[in-house]
Amino acid sequence: MSTVHAVAARRPALRSWLVLVVCEAKMVVRDTAGLVVPVVLPLLILVMSAGSAAEQPVADGYTALDVFVLPLVLTIVLGTIGVINMPSFLAYYRRTGVLRRLSATPASPAMVLVAQVVVSVAQALVGLAGALAVAFGVLGARPPAHLAAALGVYALAMAAMYAVGMVVAAVAPTPNSAVAIGLIGFFALGALGGMFGGRSTLPPALAAVGEWLPFGAAVEALAAAWVGAPVDTAHLLALAGTVVVGAAVSAAFFRWT
């Protein structure tokens, strides 16, 4: 018997996953633009829209800040990270051969994907914390009436945005095109989801489409949870559907090299 058969088909240990997560985190932290945009851009939008929105009562003591601005801003955090940042990292790794080099080690390139998602979730939580701190601490926003529902919706929306991002990473041929597709995708989803002045200003057909896309569905569902209204199943289905379709499409088209 060859001695090599004594080699167990061991996967890298848990420690290896932690090392990779730390490395991916360092990559994100050292990429200044990618670090700042998802945290600062939503804050900027929040502060700029807060002045009038905080004065505008909508229902049950909630203002336009709580019902429209905050769900929108929190969804922007997810969108910039999931749809713009993450795919550009993965496309860069693929283009430069990082994933290929990793595929020659016992680490599976899939570990990189998982590490990216972990780091992205952490970054999203930082963006979330920043926006909420300003909203509650400075602007006088009110916390969601259904906290558990809001958290659940947010987690689902996060998964949906990453699923969209994985599709971008899977289909983009180059890092540049990943950034371009990510940006356009983000703004298209955002525009149809009411990022520029609410979906009510859109032509009815576009507004209807936007409500079913992940950005619009996330904003609607989050707003409902915020004021304590029942979350529309259609919005949850739209988000869950995005996760399923995104995962399937990216799994089918993703290339390591």
Binding site: C23, M27, T96, G97, V98, R100, R101, A104
Partner: peptide
């Protein structure tokens, strides 16, 4: 590998 790149910022 020939022209394999690594995580640039590490």
């Amino acid at each position: 590998l020939q022209d394999a790149y690594l995580h640039g910022a590490l």
